[in-house]
Design a protein around this nucleic acid. Structure first.
Length: 273
DNA sequence: CGCCAGGACGCCC
DNA sequence: GGGCGTCATGGC
């Protein structure tokens, strides 16, 4: 990744980034594609921090009105710009199916999101579809002036006060999660540093957090790249392409490989196989 | 109208 | 420890 400053903006060169594939692939839910004079523009947030980013051309992006300090301290990390995805994809491509997946959606990057925001977001995600997940999170943030509520704020909510979310049976899970985090019974920063099986067990103490959601929090909210969320789509991939198990060489970055595979299998009809 | 959505829980055996 | 009905809500 290279960047330079142009007025109040930052221009970023990064061949291994596609905004659609990265910001609208089901790992984050607060990014919106908005009309603009550019080929593609997204606006969204990460906790309190808002950003508008446009594609100028393949591999070149405009970060609107971002001070260099903010870019270096927040967005560089959020977009995982210090990781060489070309190298990762090269490693993955030893495997035939992964090679196809990387070729199909090579602009996916793993966003380094906030663990608290991920915990809430992926509790909402269970047995739900992406448009509705986004709607619920939109209503939540609108209620907090467009930002994501802090644990101490969310812990004040009850199933009744959360009715406006229309999150259904998940409201009681959200309350339990907020109460645990706010009381210190669950310390997400500590969990992020635990051996992965201990971290899984600790996350699953939260009501509404099962194997899949725990894995998503580890991968998307704690940058545990060895976490491997298995949903119906990945189950299909595993049974069809990896009956003898997932390739061991990709184990440390299995979660990132999972992102390519998830996108690939979901769009298999449009992917030139 | 029924079916499904990046699942988890509670209860059953 | 695996199998199964149930859980709100909304888009199709």
């Amino acid at each position: 990744m290279d960047y330079y400053i142009k007025g109040s903006d930052i221009i970023v060169s990064e061949p291994d980034l596609d905004l659609d594939e990265t910001l609208d692939c089901g790992q984050a839910f607060r990014w919106k594609k908005i009309p603009s004079d550019y080929e593609c523009t997204y606006t969204g947030s990460f906790l309190n921090d808002c950003l508008t980013v446009s594609k100028l051309r393949d591999g070149e992006f405009l970060f609107h009105n971002v001070p260099e300090n903010d870019f270096l301290s927040k967005w560089l990390n959020y977009f995982d710009f210090d990781t060489d995805y070309s190298e990762l994809k090269k490693q993955f491509s030893e495997d035939e199916t992964l090679a196809k997946a990387c070729k199909f959606a090579g602009g996916i990057r793993l966003l380094r999101q906030d663990s608290w925001e991920c915990l809430i977001s992926f509790i909402i995600s269970q047995n739900n579809n992406i448009p509705r997940i986004k709607g619920i999170i939109d209503r939540l943030c609108e209620n907090y002036e467009g930002r994501f509520p802090y644990p101490e704020e969310f812990a004040m909510e009850t199933e009744e006060t959360l009715a406006y979310l229309r999150s259904g049976f998940r409201a009681k899970y959200l309350c339990d999660a907020a109460a645990r985090v706010n009381s210190g019974e669950t310390i997400l920063g500590d969990i992020a540093a635990m051996p992965i099986d201990a971290a899984r067990a600790e996350l699953k103490k939260i009501k509404g957090v099962g194997p899949k959601v725990a894995e998503c929090i580890l991968l998307f909210g704690m940058y545990r790249t060895d976490a491997f969320p298995v949903d119906v789509w990945i189950k299909r991939v595993l049974s069809e392409y990896y009956p003898d198990g997932f390739p061991a060489f990709a184990k440390d970055n299995a979660g990132i490989a999972q992102q390519y595979l998830f996108h690939y299998i979901r769009n298999l009809q449009t992917a030139a196989v």
